[in-house]
């Protein structure tokens, strides 16, 4: 396992473009969260301090930081599709196999790299959230601090699932730009199918089915936190209430997709003549 991970890390970290993108995808959310936590004086008109809104209180901070950090997953998605695309365009995938890597090992080395970077990202976000939380939070009881840390697990699973999807698209179309286009097409077609089901049946059924779609199921893991912040400000408005918690079945659905995408990538490579 470490041999395969080591292989993939060498391929990624010696490539300047992917190095920059990896750096951006980790450091940018880190800085955005850090910057938003400090007091900003907007040209002397007013001071903006998000901390005062209570968004950095435990446990809501876990929700907030993982949600914002996951918006930056797109940078690493580019790395994932290009690491497949490059192997095809340089024909190094062929050379790797000739040198004695099995097709299974090839896919696994990509998957391990994805899991590795998802894990690092999760740990980083966990650390920064904890530090900011400790600094700003009005609550510091242990049980409140660690309540809802399952958002971190959700974050990890979300990244893992999304990058596995990118891996599969990369294997499917062999070219990075097309793979990203496919991602966009999938996003649109999920909404079109959702619309069609709503039109044919009703909204309730459509939502239920939509929850099983790949991109929607990943989104469901960490829903937008704005409504929740609003809820905490206006607790009397019952129509704001929504289900923002991480549920085990949401994680199970995404893990199911992850397994399927990795398996399909392997089947695809196995069937293909290079």
């Amino acid at each position: 396992m470490f041999r395969l991970l080591n292989l993939e890390l060498q391929k990624l970290l010696l490539n300047r473009t992917s190095k920059v993108l990896i750096f951006v995808s980790f450091i940018l959310p880190f800085f955005v969260i850090l910057l938003s936590s400090i007091k900003i004086n907007v040209f002397g008109f007013f001071t903006l301090e998000l901390g005062e809104l209570g968004v950095f209180n435990f446990p809501i901070i876990w929700h907030l930081t993982t949600f914002f950090a996951s918006q930056f997953k797109f940078f690493f998605a580019i790395v994932v599709v290009s690491m497949i695309g490059n192997e095809y365009s340089n024909k190094t995938i062929k050379q790797n196999l000739i040198d004695g890597l099995s097709k299974k090992e090839f896919i696994l080395s990509k998957f391990y790299a994805i899991a590795f970077f998802s894990l690092i990202s999760t740990v980083l976000i966990g650390l920064i959230s904890f530090c900011i939380g400790m600094y700003y939070s009005s609550y510091d009881q242990i049980d409140i601090i660690f309540r809802e840390t399952n958002f971190l697990l959700a974050y990890f699973v979300k990244l893992l699932g999304f990058f596995s999807l990118c891996l599969f698209f990369g294997m499917l179309v062999k070219r990075s730009a097309f793979a990203l286009a496919f991602l966009f097409i999938l996003f649109i077609s999920e909404w079109i199918i959702f619309g069609l089901i709503t039109w044919q049946f009703d909204h309730h059924v459509a939502t239920k089915i939509q929850n099983f779609f790949p991109l929607q199921s990943m989104y469901n893991l960490i829903e937008q936190p704005f409504q929740r912040v609003a809820m905490s400000k206006f607790p009397e408005k019952a129509e704001l209430a929504y289900d923002y918690l991480v549920h085990w079945y949401e994680i199970a659905i995404v893990l199911g997709w992850t397994a399927l995408f990795v398996f399909l990538s392997f089947k695809l490579l196995k069937k293909r003549d290079l």
Partner: peptide, 27 residues
């Protein structure tokens, strides 16, 4: 040891780095 048609290596790596990668694959 095999060479097929055209040499396939990672263009952004040096010769030594490319060979290191092959060593890792071959164990």
């Amino acid at each position: 040891g095999a060479i097929i048609e055209r040499p396939n290596f990672y263009p952004y790596m040096t010769a030594e780095q490319n060979l290191k990668l092959v060593c890792k694959i071959k164990g």
